[in-house]
Design a protein around this nucleic acid. Structure first.
Lengths: 344, 344
DNA sequence: TGCTGTAATGTAATCGTTTACAGACCACGC
DNA sequence: GCGTGGTCTGTAAACGATTACATTACAGCA
C-alpha cells in the first residue's frame, strides 16, 4: 500500500542504497544527476521514509515519554506545552502518560516506554521513588526530572527553589505587618511540599516569630483541601490574619471558604499562593502568588534531555528562581486600605 | 545490550519461532513443557518484546496521535486525560501534538504521524479544514474528530449539541426575567462558535425578543476578549442585564471587567458561561455554565477510534447533550435576592 | 600498459520481530 | 505395513529502512 524505498529505487532505476543515501542526506557521494533522478522519483511517488523501520535499524525512535501525575491538573499543561514545543522543533514526538501517582501505573509505563525504545523520558511526577530512578540510570535511559527530584539521586532535573519561594511569600506578608500567618501545605511526604514549608518557617524564624503548629495545616495540594484547612482554622478559633498556601489550588479553595465565612480578602485575611496557574489572575481578588516558570521549565527540561540523549552524561540540575507576583489578594496594592492586622 | 528473542530462544533451547509463539500468545500449539521452559527463560532474562520491531512486522504501532490546538488551554487537558485513560487500557500510547491552529504545523504533524505509522488519530482542533480530512479519509487513516467537525465530511466525531447548550443558557436567563441579554461569542469562522450563537438567537426568537446586533460581541474565546467585549458594551452604554458567554474563559474575563467597573454579579449583571472548566466552580461568584462532558468526550472518542481501527468503517457521530450547571453567577440560587432586572 | 586510489553505486546483512511453510514425530485405522 | 492426519517445532522470508563491504569505472601516474 504505502510507498517504500524499493518503489523509489525502481522508479529511479537505482538501488535502494542509493535512495537511502539521497533521502537520509548521508555523507556518501552521489552523482548530482543520480541524486536529481532519485529526488524526482521521491516527489513523484510522494515517498516518505518509514520512521518505524528507520527506528528499528538505527535504534532511535525520535520519541520521548512525558510522565505526569495528571495532565488535567492545571499545573502540568504549561509544562507539557513547553516540552512539546522544544521536542517538535527537534523532530521528536511526545508520548503522554498519566500516572495518578500510582506506583503500579508508573512501573507499567516505564516498562512500556522501554519496549517502545523511547529516546528518553521526562518525569514530572511525584511518585518518583528512587528505586525506579536508579533502575533507569542503570539501564542508561536518558531521564530528566521536572519540578520534583528526590535528594541524592544523580539525575538531571529542572527545579524551582521552593524554599525561597515560600520564604519570599512569607516575608512579603511580614512586611505588610502580618504576624499571625497560617500555612496550608501539601502532603509532607513530597519533598517539594516539605521545602515550601521550610521556607515559611525560615522566614518566621528570621523575623523572630515562633512557629505555631496550630497555624500549619495540610491541604493535600487540592482546592477542597485548602477550603477544609481554613475551615478547621476558623472552627478552632485559631487567630490569623494571613495565609501562605503551598499552591494556588489550595489558595483558591481557601479564598472561597473565607468568603463564605464572611471574611473579606485582603481586608480581613491576606493570602498568597504558589505556582501562578492561569487562574491566579482571573480569580477575584486576583491572587498574589509565587510564580513558577512552568512553560520555561518544560522547555528547559526537554532541551536538557536532548543534550543527554546526545551523549552528555554528567547529571546537572537547574534550579530556577521563583518570582513573587504581587496582585490583590495580599493587600499590598490596595493603597487606600490598611491591612486588617494594623487596623484598630 | 537489550535481551532479544534470540537470547531467550538460546537459553530455552528452542527456536525463536517457538518463543514468539509463547510470548505473543499465538493460537499455535506449544507443548506445555516447552512453554514452561520458554517462560522460565523469559522471566529469568527479563525479556520484553521490542514493540518497534513488532510494529514493523505487524504494521501496528499501538500508538495514536492526539492533535489539539493548545494543551495549555484549560478546555483540552480533561479531553486528553479521557483519551489517554482509554488508550492506555487498550495498550496504546498517545502522541501529543499542539497545532496552535496553524495549518502548516497541522500538516507537518499529519505527515509525521503518517511516517510514524500511528494506528489512528484524534483531532480536537479547529483548523480541521475539510481538505486535510478528506485526504486522511482517502488514505484510510482511522480518525475521530472531537468537539468540532466541519459539516459534510463523513468522519466519525464526538460532539456536543452547542446550539442546545446556549439555547438552554439563554432560556434560563429569560426565565429569571432578563430581557436585555448580551452574547459574547467566539470567532464566527468556527462552526461551533456559530452554533452557539444560533442557540442564543433561537431562544430569544422563541421568547419574541428581537436580536439586537449591538448586544452581540466577539470575544475570540479568550479571557481578554471577554473583558474587552464587556468593556465595549459598557463604554457604548448599551443597556443589558445579563450575558451569555460562548465559553467560560470569556465569561470569567467579563466578570472581572464588570467588577472593576463597579457592577455586581449577579445583582447588576447575570452571566452564564460554556464548557464548565475546572475554575468555573472556583471563581467568585461560582459560574453558572453549560457543562461539556470533556473527560467523557475524550473517552468516547478513543473508544470509537478503537472500533474504527478494529475495522468498523461506517462514520458515526455522537452528539452529547450539554448540561446547564446552575451556580451563583446568574442569581437563580440567590433566594433572598431579586435579579437586577426586576428591581425598581 | 598496468597499477592504484577514489568516487559512485550495488549487494546483502542487519535491526527484532512474526509467520508461512516445511519437516519430524507419533498415533491411528485400514 | 503404510498412508493419513494432527501436534509440535524449526527454517527462513518477510516488514522497511541503514550501512558495511564489494564492485565497477575511470583518472592519474610511473
Amino acid at each position: 500500500m504505502a510507498v517504500t524505498i524499493h518503489d523509489v529505487a525502481q522508479a529511479a532505476g537505482v538501488s535502494v542504497a542509493t535512495v537511502s543515501r539521497v533521502v537520509s542526506g548521508s555523507v556518501h557521494h552521489v552523482r548530482p544527476e543520480t541524486r536529481a533522478r532519485v529526488q524526482a522519483a521521491v516527489t513523484q511517488l510522494r515517498y516518505r521514509p518509514n520512521l518505524v523501520a528507520r527506528g528499528l535499524k538505527q535504534r532511535v525512535t525520535h520519541t520521548v515519554g512525558l510522565i505526569v501525575p495528571d495532565i488535567s491538573n492545571p499545573f502540568f499543561p504549561a509544562i507539557a506545552r513547553g516540552v512539546e514545543d522544544v521536542a517538535s522543533r527537534a523532530g521528536k514526538g511526545v508520548l503522554l502518560c498519566n500516572t495518578d501517582e500510582d506506583l503500579t501505573k508508573e512501573r507499567a509505563y516505564l516498562n512500556l516506554l522501554d519496549t517502545r525504545m523511547v529516546d528518553g523520558l521526562i518525569f514530572a511526577t511525584v511518585g518518583t521513588n528512587p528505586g525506579h530512578l536508579r533502575m533507569l540510570r542503570r539501564r542508561g535511559v536518558p531521564v530528566v526530572l521536572i519540578a520534583r527530584a528526590p535528594r541524592g539521586v544523580g539525575i538531571d532535573a529542572v527545579l524551582v527553589d521552593n524554599r525561597r519561594g515560600t520564604r519570599e511569600a512569607t516575608e512579603h506578608l511580614l512586611r505588610l505587618g502580618h504576624r499571625k500567618i497560617a500555612f496550608i501545605g501539601g502532603p509532607t511526604t513530597l519533598p517539594d511540599a516539605a521545602e515550601r514549608r521550610t521556607g515559611y518557617e525560615e522566614a518566621l524564624a528570621a523575623a523572630g516569630i515562633p512557629v505555631a503548629p496550630a497555624l500549619i495545616r495540610d491541604g493535600g495540594f487540592r482546592a477542597e483541601g485548602g477550603a477544609a484547612a481554613v475551615g478547621a482554622l476558623l472552627d478552632q478559633r485559631v487567630p490569623f490574619t494571613a495565609i501562605v498556601a503551598a499552591n494556588d489550588l489550595m489558595a483558591i479553595g481557601a479564598m472561597e471558604k473565607l468568603r463564605r465565612r464572611g471574611r473579606r480578602i485582603p481586608d480581613d485575611v491576606a493570602i498568597v499562593g504558589f505556582d501562578d496557574i492561569t487562574f491566579a489572575r482571573l480569580v477575584e481578588p486576583r491572587l498574589t502568588t509565587v510564580a513558577q516558570p512552568k512553560y520555561r521549565m518544560g522547555c528547559l527540561a526537554m532541551e536538557r534531555l536532548l543534550e543527554v540523549i546526545g551523549g552528555d552524561r554528567r547529571p546537572r540540575r537547574a534550579v530556577l528562581e521563583p518570582k513573587l507576583v504581587v496582585r490583590d489578594s495580599c493587600g499590598a496594592r490596595a493603597r487606600g486600605r490598611v491591612p486588617a492586622a494594623q487596623r484598630s
